[in-house]
Amino acid sequence: MRSNQYKLVELFLIFVLIPVSFAITYPIWMKMIIGFFGFIYVIYMLLKVEKNKFKVASNLNWNQFWKTTFIKLVGIAIITSIYMQIVDIDNLFIVVLYKPLLWIAILFVYSFFSVYPQELIYRTFFFQRYQSLFKSEWLVIIVNATLFSLAHIFFKNTLVMFLTFIGGILFALTYKKTKSTLLVSIEHAIYGCWLFTVGMGEMLGFPS
């Protein structure tokens, strides 16, 4: 019981209090320090408490992963392209057409230095650490997606919150199915890179 109480307090601090605090105005260096030590704490808990080995499983079903990810990407591409065509046509594919070097650089930096840490925290750490607190499989997925959306509250954009909630559900389902940080990170990177490519990067914090 005490262990569960500690986990609930820990969950609140890491996934609610800290993200919400980032939406409040105070010095950026303080936010960076909080974020840094928060990430260090997560890595420590994964290694020392959850006994995570950070090894790529040898039995991953790559063919099924690529197939399902491609199908979902096609759906995302159609919906977001139509949205940009209707709502913000001036920015449709603007970066890839006019700043291709920036486009390549952002795809690289985002994929390796943003996506993977996010997935370590919001999928690997969250599910290994807190899944036992939830009796319902769907409840833990919805809570995870909600907290992932909350992590983006500092953008102060309703559409961003909605997109990250949907993304959170997709990523949670993938992690639940594969138990692979690598696969869910690849999926996350693909969808995020597409949003930047199609022209929705500015609202998601990408330079343009």
Rank of each mutant, 00 (worst) to 15 (best):
R2G: 07
R2Y: 11
N4C: 00
N4F: 01
Y6G: 03
Y6M: 09
Y6H: 05
K7C: 04
L11W: 01
F12V: 10
L13Q: 05
L17F: 12
S21K: 05
I24T: 00
Y26W: 05
I28N: 13
W29I: 10
K31N: 08
I33R: 10
Y41V: 04
V42Q: 09
I43D: 09
I43V: 15
Y44D: 06
M45L: 02
L47C: 04
K51R: 03
L60F: 07
N61S: 13
N61F: 07
N61E: 14
F70R: 12
F70Y: 14
V74R: 11
I76L: 15
A77C: 08
I82E: 01
M84D: 01
D90A: 13
Y98C: 04
K99A: 15
I104Q: 13
A105V: 14
I106K: 13
F108V: 15
Y110W: 07
Y110S: 07
F112V: 15
P117K: 02
Q118P: 04
E119H: 03
L120G: 11
L120C: 13
R123S: 05
F125L: 06
F126A: 03
L133P: 01
L133H: 00
F148G: 02
S149Y: 04
A151Q: 04
F154P: 01
N157Q: 09
L159N: 00
L159P: 01
M161L: 12
L163D: 11
T164K: 00
F165P: 06
I166K: 01
I169S: 06
L170H: 13
A172I: 12
A172W: 08
Y175T: 04
K176R: 14
K177R: 15
K179L: 12
T181G: 11
E187N: 14
W194V: 05
F196W: 10
F196K: 08
T197I: 11
G199S: 12
E202L: 14
G205Q: 05
